[in-house]
Amino acid sequence: MSRIVSITLQNNDDARPIIEAIEKDNPDATVNLYPAMVKIDCDGRLIVKQETVEGLLGREWDVQELHLSIVSIAGNVDEEDDYFELSWNI
């Protein structure tokens, strides 16, 4: 049974640190490249942490800035001040 959660981001400068942060915080994630976009899949759960993105970016980063780069998602969303998480309850 597929439990893949997924986030697709534009493949541009703004999104690159986010993509990197996701890879760091979700070691099991698979990164798929398509023309102009990146689809990151992960089993069951995937998290974007503010702290990690800020570290890579070298500035303050509002989690809601994620919405500037997002193309698509699959999973239940939990958005907090310091993280954005996708999950399935399976």
């Binding site: 976009m37 919405h67 997002i70 193309v71 698509s72 969303v77």
Partner: peptide, 13 residues
């Protein structure tokens, strides 16, 4: 397209 899709994550949720 991508700019519209960036709203779509909210719509999907």
């Amino acid at each position: 397209g991508f700019s519209a899709q960036s709203d779509e994550a909210r719509h999907m949720t």
